[in-house]
Design a protein around this nucleic acid. Structure first.
Lengths: 126, 126
DNA sequence: TCGATGTATCGATGAATGTCAATGTGTGAA
DNA sequence: TTCACACATTGACATTCATCGATACATCGA
């Protein structure tokens, strides 16, 4: 288990070159793959959409277990994956843990996949 | 292995609603996750960028094995995954099999991840 | 302090995945 | 036909993953 992987942050994932822009560094490919892997499970994709659909765009585990039809430990496990990938943040408030989507991270992935990057100013570092 | 899954085409993956647009259907989440899973391996991310970097934006297996440093069967296996996810096409020309990226599919995924979808006309079915 | 509640962690298990060596398949040239 | 080449498939193996029940941890209210 890659427990000791540094949590992915926006800076750490600062790879902005689209996949189609040329040969990619191994390290960038690894970071990207780690994030895409987090999206590579139907349950986690649904969890993201469920969080986004919640009022306030945040949700606790108790809001998510019933819709996805999985046990509480399993949902907690998936949320941990999403947090580890930097796609979601976790905030403890009282007894509840509130998860919220990190839009900037989704935007980063979106740009990476965009085959026709909009005209970016030269030297635009992200 | 989900061998019997229908190959993903653009129509089949016609899920355009961004992940953040609300609760997603289970079937849509499965299709999306299948494509993201194909991107969830560093080798496959690099393979995509290697193909894009090739002149003509297409490559045969022989062009890819050495850069990624894996055996020919392994590269062939990864390419099969990418083709199955609809991210890449395969065309046999003589002895060589030429793989090319499907930009529309990457664009679809890019849109799905974009947290702020550009103002789309109402009822825009993709 | 004690009990109830929301989450996280642990341990186990079956399934999926990445990788390779060996082999099979199809194509083109001699 | 025969050979060489490019690629796919098979079989095996170790690793990772998704899932659950049981349990531990943390917080709040009584």
């Amino acid at each position: 288990m890659t427990t000791s992987l540094p949590p992915l942050t926006l800076e750490a994932s600062g790879c902005c070159a689209p996949v189609t822009a040329g040969v990619m560094e191994v390290a960038d490919a690894q970071r990207l793959a780690q994030m895409f892997k987090a999206l590579g499970d139907p349950t986690r994709v649904r969890l993201l959409s469920l969080i986004a659909a919640q009022t306030g765009a945040e949700a606790c585990v108790c809001d998510l277990t019933e819709p996805v039809g999985l046990s509480q430990p399993t949902v907690s496990h998936h949320m941990r994956q999403l947090v580890g990938a930097g796609l979601v943040t976790r905030e403890q408030r009282g007894k509840w843990a509130y998860y919220a989507i990190v839009p900037e991270m989704l935007a980063t992935l979106s740009r990476v996949l965009d085959p026709q990057p909009l005209q970016a100013g030269p030297g635009s570092s992200c």
